[in-house]
């Protein structure tokens, strides 16, 4: 075929990945989610070596490479460590605007991400001031819980 014979734009073939997965969350996350679902409590796991209280809990401390055993209830209040307010729509992600914050729940040594709700996000500057690092929030638990991170959200105090 002569180059000049090609008059149309290159063809596009479409494809799609639609793959279902069943993730086993493991014993540690299972206990975390059951406590969250059934008792409305957030718990972390304590590292016997560095004494860190890991929230979300993990079966082992990455830094010390030792197994964690002890459960410690944390929160429900905590301190904002970082946040963002998403104003742009992204495929497959929630309808904007929404705010996400990392919060150190009282008693934890690490911060956990979740949505911040019950807050007017229409003015970015005003909302950002309310979400400032160091501000206090509380975890609010959904009435109907299913054993997932989205069973709770953060609300400014």
């Amino acid at each position: 075929m002569n180059q000049k014979e090609q008059t149309e734009a290159p063809l596009i073939h479409s494809g799609e990945w639609k793959i279902h997965y069943d993730y086993a969350v493991g014993e540690t996350a299972t206990q975390f989610f059951l406590r969250l679902r059934d008792q409305g409590k957030i718990a972390g796991k304590k590292c016997p070596s560095c004494q860190g209280v890991l929230v979300p809990p993990r079966a082992f401390c990455e830094r010390c490479f030792v197994q964690t055993e002890e459960w410690v209830d944390v929160g429900p209040e905590g301190t904002i460590e970082a946040f963002t307010i998403v104003y742009e729509p992204f495929d497959g992600l929630p309808e904007p605007p929404y705010a996400v914050a990392y919060v150190t729940l009282d008693g934890a040594t690490t911060a956990m991400a979740n949505f911040v709700r019950a807050l007017d996000l229409s003015d970015p500057e005003v909302a950002a001031r309310q979400l400032a690092v160091g501000n206090r929030v509380e975890a609010v638990f959904a009435d109907a819980r299913e054993g997932a991170v989205t069973d709770f959200y953060y609300r400014l105090m």
């Binding site: 860190g52 990455e62 460590e81 970082a82 990392y102 150190t104 040594t109 690490t110 911060a111 991400a113």
Partner: peptide, 16 residues
């Protein structure tokens, strides 16, 4: 670590 929250809380050894 993959966990950004570990670089923010009081137990952090580096800061996000």
């Amino acid at each position: 670590t993959i966990y950004m929250g570990d670089k923010m809380g009081p137990g952090r050894d580096v800061d996000h």
